[in-house]
Design a binder for these strands. Structure first.
Lengths: 153, 153
DNA sequence: GGTGAAAGTTTTTCTCT
DNA sequence: AGAGAAAAACTTTCACC
């Protein structure tokens, strides 16, 4: 997998505007449609492009609560870490799960309709997860920046 | 803005597969193409759909480091908060900036090519940001879950 | 708000350089 | 690898229910 300058620009454009047409994309990078499409397909097959997603406005859809949860486990054995991740995988409210270095083992991004349903989720789904030692939650007051993925510009 | 069951399914499909064709989308929700397209346009205009983005694989593109930074400011006055956010807005390495309740004021998601460039970024761009009292960073070891946006399923 | 058909683009394939 | 032309598919509009 070897990316040249054109590939980088294709990725930057697609990250910014995922539904751009192939002809418009080709124009922007100075190609014609066919080679442009071939490059994009190659980027998809190589795994550089994992997929495309609509970016939805959570608040408009009634999801008013975003919370970051810092979770520490009782054991950091690989089995315990995996068991926790597998439990998390079953919870739609958890949108992201990252394992961290240091004292905190995981950071989770949780999206919920309201504070009440979040608190119910916290006590009935997250705190009882396998091996959990402690969960510290911080409510997102406002988000000033959310850029997709990778700083290509 | 009033969403019915079909709108919800359209949003779920587009969140999952942002480049699905309109005819395929229409089939999946049990519509024909024209009303399906009209609904999607309405969802876009209403702001429920903010945009579409390619989901890129950071590692494949050479961005091997993801870090969460917990930032506390010296002042929580609105002016100070804004000044910090405006500084952050100029930094491409910072992909997300969320204001939190509690002792930590902001959580940032930072993406970098390697540890060295991250550390340079930290000392030259983030620690000197306006009003910063403390920055605690945690390196992401691995990510087991990243679902886009909102738990619609 | 939904349908069916028609017009205009776009995607995709093919062939050539 | 990229370009031009042609075929297939999709998007978009229109008239109608």
């Amino acid at each position: 997998m070897n990316f040249d300058e054109i590939d980088r620009r294709l990725l930057a454009e697609l990250q910014d505007e995922g539904r751009i047409t192939n002809v418009e994309l080709a124009q922007r990078v100075g190609l014609t449609a066919p080679p442009c499409l071939r490059r994009v397909r190659a980027l998809e097959e190589s795994g550089a492009i994992r997929g495309y997603h609509a970016d939805l406005d959570a608040a408009t859809l009634g999801f008013t609560i975003t919370v970051y949860a810092m979770v520490s486990l009782k054991s950091q054995a690989e089995d315990a870490l995996r068991a926790f991740e597998e439990h998390i995988a079953t919870l739609p409210a958890v949108r992201e799960c990252h394992m961290l270095n240091g004292e905190i083992d995981f950071i989770l991004k949780i999206v919920s309709k309201d504070l009440q349903s979040f608190q119910e989720f916290l006590t009935s789904r997250l705190t009882p997860a396998p091996n959990v030692a402690s969960v510290k939650t911080s409510l997102v007051i406002r988000t000033s920046k959310t850029e997709p993925g990778v700083p290509l510009e």
